[in-house]
Design a binder for these strands. Structure first.
Length: 303
DNA sequence: CGATGTGTTGAG
DNA sequence: TCAACACATCGG
């Protein structure tokens, strides 16, 4: 249920007795889920607020069904940002993928609401997927051009990436040698060019940083250290990013068709033990890597 | 008639 | 912005 926003159950009052006479209270039970309201007949309503205006999303037998409905409406009303902030692993259980984003984008709010109220959203989405996958003109408008929506989505998709490995920058990595050592194990696993990287001669590897800026680094085998190095162009990256020894350099690759390489860096971990003492609690990691490689910062997918 | 969804309020 | 609640309106 990770895409369902769970309402604070401690605030909902499930007491069903009136203290004095022991009679059943007619008070309805609160829902655990945001956007879900009880109905007097035991069913559940779903509603979402759109700019201080309440939009009714229909009634449902299951509280969870109402919550799912609310979440779909959330995707439509709060925009695609809501989708891209979900990691792949969160989307999978709900089949939330780029196709669903495309589906949401190609229907008006009114149409989506209508489907939700009629409980036909899942069917419509399924039909839409078939249409696309059975040779339909994927993302093509009347003139045969890619629609803006399609391009936006492909762009979003191409930004999705997995972490290949991280390296803590050594003093020599950020020094005047103009090269960064890539540990052999990672180089041979992820940069599948080592066969063509002979002694002395190398290839150029192309990376993008978090701002989309392109970086090309020479890449070759460095026999003296028995490992591979990023060389030509590396020092420019060090200078521009103000990379210091101890900082962490992350190597990523897009999971989409194009398999682009990305390079990003972040400051070495600050010592938070002092802060933890002061606050009397242990803070979670600033950044973590999930088992599917999706990078999260403050609990938000920053891929 | 029961079910649905709106009017309205007040808390946060 | 949001859920709680009352109740008008819908529709079989």
């Amino acid at each position: 249920m990770d895409t369902m926003s769970c309402w604070n159950a401690s605030t909902s009052d499930y007491s069903t007795m009136n203290g004095a006479n022991g009679a059943r209270s007619n008070k309805l039970p609160s829902s655990r889920y945001k956007g879900v309201v009880p109905q007097s007949n035991g069913r559940w309503g779903a509603q979402i607020y759109d700019k201080s205006h309440r939009v009714w999303l229909g009634t449902f037998n299951d509280e969870e069904e109402a919550a799912k409905t609310y979440n779909i409406a959330l995707l439509k009303f709060r925009g695609l940002d809501a989708i891209t902030h979900l990691s792949r692993s969160q989307m999978k259980p709900y089949g939330r993928d780029v196709t669903e984003a495309l589906f949401l984008e190609s229907h008006s709010k009114a149409e989506i609401i209508d489907m939700l109220r009629k409980h036909s959203y899942a069917n419509e989405l399924e039909m839409y997927k078939h249409k696309l996958h059975n040779g339909g003109a994927l993302g093509l408008d009347d003139g045969g051009k890619r629609t803006k929506c399609y391009l936006d989505l492909m762009d979003t998709c191409s930004r999705e990436r997995e972490l290949l490995f991280e390296k803590v920058a050594t003093p020599s990595d950020v020094g005047r040698l103009n090269r960064m050592v890539i540990p052999k194990q990672h180089a041979e696993k992820h940069f599948q060019v080592h066969l063509s990287v002979g002694f002395g001669k190398g290839v150029l590897l192309k990376f993008e940083d978090e701002l989309g800026k392109v970086w090309r680094f020479g890449y070759c085998y460095w026999s003296s250290s028995q490992s591979y190095v990023l060389s030509k162009g590396w020092i420019r990256f060090v200078k521009e990013k103000k990379l210091k020894a101890g900082d962490i350099v992350m190597f990523q690759r897009s999971v989409g068709e194009d398999k682009k390489l990305f390079i990003e860096c972040r400051p070495r971990k600050v010592d938070v033990s002092r802060i933890e003492e002061m606050h009397g609690r242990v803070a979670g990691p600033l950044a973590t890597v999930q088992d599917d490689g999706v990078v999260r910062l403050f609990g938000v997918n920053i891929s």
